[in-house]
Simulated assay, not measured.
Amino acid sequence: MKNEIKIFLTALMFYTRIPVGHIQGWSEKMLNKSTRYFPIIGWIVGGVGHWFFQCSE
């Protein structure tokens, strides 16, 4: 479970500008595995963007 959280944070770090801190044991292999979380990160970023623009009207 802890490894999956590291992979998720790697996807978050790669796809956004959100600082997630230093990830121990980072590798290109972990970045390849993080592609499974890209759709989830996209939904999060899209949802936050939608919420922001709805609140600003």
Rank of each mutant, 00 (worst) to 15 (best):
K6L: 15
I44Q: 00
F53G: 02
G49E: 12
Y15T: 02
F38K: 06
T10Y: 00
I40H: 06
I23M: 04
I5V: 15
F14A: 15
G42E: 14
Q54Y: 02
E57T: 02
F14L: 15
K29C: 04
I44H: 01
F38M: 10
S34W: 01
L12E: 02
S56F: 13
G46Q: 02
I5P: 01
I7N: 03
G21W: 10
I18E: 09
H22A: 08
G46P: 00
E28R: 09
T35G: 06
V20Q: 03
E57K: 09
E28L: 10
N32Y: 09
R17C: 04
I44S: 03
E57R: 03
Y37T: 09
F14C: 10
R36K: 15
A11E: 06
V20E: 09
K2F: 14
I23C: 02
C55P: 00
W51V: 03
L9F: 12
N32F: 10
N32A: 05
H50Q: 15
W43I: 08
F14N: 15
V45P: 00
E4H: 01
I40M: 08
E4I: 02
R36H: 12
C55G: 03
E4N: 06
G47Q: 14
K33E: 15
Y15P: 00
R17H: 10
H50G: 03
H50V: 06
I41C: 00
L31H: 08
